[in-house]
Design a protein around this nucleic acid. Structure first.
Length: 563
RNA sequence: UGUCUUAUGGUGUAAUGGUAGCACUGCAGUUUCUGGAUCUGCCUGUCUAGGUUCGAAUCCUAGUAAGACAACCA
C-alpha cells in the first residue's frame, strides 16, 4: 500500500505564493510565471538582497516559471562593471541560475521610441526649469503643486528639444522630459514625474557615450518588465507608492491583456547591522572594514568569507518569511541558522586558541600514541581520524584554574577531567613565573582510561580538547563579533560610525591546531571543538594558517559565569 | 493636516469566519567522551472602541501607533 505523506504538515504559503497560486488557478497571463531580479550594479549584494533573490528565483523554480537577471543600469554616474561580476557570482553561489541576463540599457532605444510616442500624444513635455524650481513647484504631500510654464509647449517643439537632449547640445541639468499627468495628485509621484534627464559627464558602463539622455527608474523599470514579459514584479515596501505610476506607464503602451503586476514585501532589517548601500560603501571607503568582503559585513561575499554556507543563508531566509510588516529581525536568528546548518556538516577538529602547556608527568617522554576520534558525532558517515597524543600538550588557558568554584568542571588541582578521545587525567598543580602568570599545568594520566577501554567509561564531569605540543600547527585565528554595538544603528541619532563595536575583531596569533588541518583549503569549514565554527580565510597559506570564526558555540558556562 | 501601507508573546512568523500554533530568545530539567548537539517542560501575544455574525486575530466603521512618499537615485 502506498504511504502518503499525510502526517507531514503542509508548509503554509506566504502572501506572494498565495497570490501566484491564485493567478495560476485563474489562468492569468496564460498560466505563465515570470519574475526578475533587478539589481542596480552600484554595490555588492547583501543578505537583504538574498531575501529578494530567494523569492524571485524561488517562485520561478517552484511554479515552473522563469527568472531573469536584469541589471537596472539607468544611471551611469553610479554604476560600474565591477559590480556586475560580483552580483552574478553571488547569485550563483546562492545556488540560483537565471534564464537570461538582461540590462535596462538593452532597452534604451525602445524606451526612447516610446517616450517619443508619448510626446506625440501630448502626454509628455520638455521642461527647461532648474531642479530646484521643479522641486519647489512639486508642492508638498498636503499642498498641490503648480504647473510648469513649459507644460503646454507645442508637440513639435518638445520633439525637437527631446532629440537635442540626447545629442550633447543640451547641458547636464538644463532640461528634462516629464510626463504630463496631474500636478495636484495626492500621490506625489503623479505630479509630472521626470522620465528623462541629461547625463553627459559619465560614460555608461555598457553603451559608452552613445546616450546623453537617460530614463528614470519609474519609467524604465516597469517598461522593462513589460518588454520582457514579467508576470510578477516583486520588490520591497518602499515602492508601494510608486505602483500607481508603474501601472500608469504600462497602461499607456500595453497592447494586449498581459500586464506585469508589482507586489511589495518587507525588506530585511537585522539587529546590530546596517543594510544601506551608502553606509556600507562608507565603511569600505573609510577603511573601517577591510573591504566589501570583510567577514563582519552583511554582504553575501562577507558572509561567505565569514564561513556562512549557502544552506545556512537559505535556512535563515526560510525562517524569517515574507510579509508586509516592516520589522527588525534578531541577528541571533541568523547565527542560529549558521549553527544549525554547520552542526550537521562541519568536521570537528581540535584547536587551542589561547594556549597553556599541559605536561602529563607520568607519560613516557618521547612516546606518541595515535588516538582515534570521530569526525562528526552528528554524522556517522563522516568517519573518524587519528590525532597524536604525547607528554606535552596545549590546552586552553581558561580550562585551568588554580582555585576554582564548585561548578568548574575543568582542570584544577586534585580534580579529574577527560582529555577528549585520550585519557582521564588528574591535575597535580602548575608552575608560575615571577609575575604569577601560569606557564605550565601538570597532570597524571591513568593508562587504563584510554578511550575505548572499559575504565574510560568512568564518569568525569569535564571533557577538554587539546593538541600535542610537538605536532600542532601554529595558526592565526580571527574572532569576529557583531559590527555594531547598538541594536538598531539605523534608528540611532548618532553617526553610525560612532556606533561600531570596538571588539568586532580580535586577532589571535598564538594558536595551535591539530596536524590534520595542514591540508585544509580556503572556505573549508570546521567546528573547533568546544569553541565554535571556523573556516579557512583566503589569506591563509600553507606556512600560516588563518581561520575566521563564523559563530561561537553556545556557551552555558560563560552564561553561568556572567550571572 | 494629504496619499499609500502595516499592527498577533521580547523578536520574527502561522491560523484565509470555527480549539491562537511554530521558530528564535529566556528559564528549568534530561542526556552527553564538546558546559555543543539531543530530548522534555515552562514563561510570555491578537493595538483600542464600536458594529456584523451562532461564532471575529480574520469582515465593516472610527480611533491610536508605526512606516513609506515631496532625488534630474534605484
Amino acid at each position: 500500500m502506498e504511504i502518503t505523506n499525510l502526517e507531514v504538515p503542509k508548509k503554509s504559503l506566504n502572501f506572494i505564493e498565495t497570490m501566484v497560486e491564485q493567478d495560476l488557478k485563474d489562468g492569468k497571463n496564460g498560466g505563465r510565471i515570470q519574475t526578475r531580479f533587478p539589481p542596480e550594479p552600484n554595490g555588492y549584494l547583501h543578505i537583504g538582497h538574498a531575501k529578494a533573490i530567494c523569492l524571485d528565483f524561488g517562485i520561478a523554480r517552484n511554479y515552473d516559471g522563469i527568472c531573469n537577471l536584469r541589471f537596472d543600469d539607468t544611471n551611469p554616474v553610479k554604476e560600474d562593471v565591477e559590480y556586475v561580476d560580483s552580483i552574478m557570482d553571488d547569485i550563483q553561489w546562492l545556488g540560483y541560475q537565471w534564464k537570461n541576463v538582461y540590462y535596462a540599457s538593452d532597452y534604451f532605444q525602445q524606451l526612447w521610441d516610446l517616450a517619443v510616442e508619448l510626446i506625440k500624444q501630448g502626454k509628455a513635455y520638455v521642461d527647461e526649469q532648474s531642479a530646484e524650481t521643479i522641486a519647489k513647484q512639486k508642492g508638498t504631500p498636503t499642498v498641490a503643486g503648480t504647473e510648469s510654464p513649459f507644460r503646454n509647449r507645442p508637440i513639435e517643439e518638445n520633439l525637437e528639444l527631446f532629440a537635442k537632449m540626447n545629442t550633447g547640445e543640451i547641458a547636464e541639468g538644463a532640461m528634462v522630459l516629464r510626463a504630463k499627468i496631474d500636478m495636484a495628485s495626492s500621490n506625489m509621484h503623479f505630479r509630472d514625474p521626470i522620465m528623462y534627464r541629461v547625463i553627459n559627464s559619465h560614460p555608461h558602463h555598457r553603451t559608452g557615450w552613445q546616450w546623453k539622455a537617460y530614463p528614470m527608474y519609474d519609467y524604465a523599470h516597469g517598461q522593462s518588465d513589460y518588454f520582457e514579459g514579467v508576470t510578477h514584479s516583486l520588490c520591497t515596501l518602499e515602492f508601494e507608492v510608486h505602483r500607481p505610476l508603474y501601472d500608469w506607464f504600462i497602461d499607456q503602451f500595453a497592447d494586449s491583456a498581459y500586464r506585469p503586476r508589482q507586489t511589495e514585501f518587507n525588506r530585511l532589517n537585522l539587529t546590530y547591522t546596517v543594510m544601506s548601500k551608502r553606509k556600507m560603501l562608507q565603511l569600505v571607503q573609510e577603511k573601517l572594514v577591510s573591504g566589501w568582503d570583510d567577514p563582519r559585513m552583511p554582504t553575501i561575499c562577507g558572509l561567505r568569507r565569514r564561513g556562512y554556507s549557502p544552506e545556512a543563508i537559505h535556512n535563515f531566509i526560510d525562517k524569517i518569511g515574507y510579509t508586509k510588516y516592516d520589522g527588525i529581525n534578531d541577528i541571533g536568528l541568523l547565527e542560529h541558522a549558521a549553527r544549525e546548518t554547520l552542526n550537521k556538516t562541519a568536521q570537528r577538529v581540535n584547536a587551542v586558541i589561547n594556549p597553556v602547556k599541559l605536561i602529563v608527568t607520568n607519560y613516557p617522554e618521547g612516546q606518541v600514541e595515535l588516538m582515534c576520534t570521530e569526525n562528526n558525532p552528528e554524522d556517522p558517515a563522516a568517519g573518524s581520524r587519528e590525532i597524536p597524543f604525547s607528554r606535552e600538550l596545549y590546552i586552553e588557558r581558561e580550562d585551568f584554574m588554580e582555585e576554582a568554584p564548585k561548578k568548574f568542571f575543568r582542570m584544577t588541582p586534585g580534580q579529574e577531567v577527560r582529555l577528549k578521545s585520550a585519557y582521564i587525567v588528574k591535575c597535580t598543580g602548575c608552575l608560575k613565573d615571577d609575575e604569577g602568570n601560569i606557564t605550565e599545568v601538570y597532570c597524571e594520566y591513568d593508562p587504563l582510561t584510554k578511550s575505548g577501554l572499559p575504565d574510560a567509561n568512568r564518569k568525569v564531569k569535564g571533557t577538554l580538547h587539546w593538541v600535542s605540543a610537538t605536532h600542532a600547527l601554529k595558526a592565526e585565528v580571527r574572532l569576529y563579533d557583531r559590527l555594531f554595538s547598538v541594536e538598531n544603528p539605523s534608528a540611532d541619532e548618532r553617526d553610525f560610525r560612532d556606533l561600531l563595536n570596538p571588539d568586532s575583531l580580535k586577532v589571535l596569533t598564538n594558536c595551535y591546531v591539530e596536524p590534520s588541518l595542514s591540508s585544509a583549503k580556503p572556505l573549508d569549514h570546521f567546528q573547533f571543538q568546544r569553541i565554535g565554527y571556523f573556516n579557512i580565510d583566503p589569506d591563509s597559506t600553507s606556512e600560516k594558517l588563518v581561520f575566521n570564526r563564523t559563530v561561537s558555540l553556545k556557551d552555558s558556562w560563560a552564561k553561568e559565569q556572567s550571572r
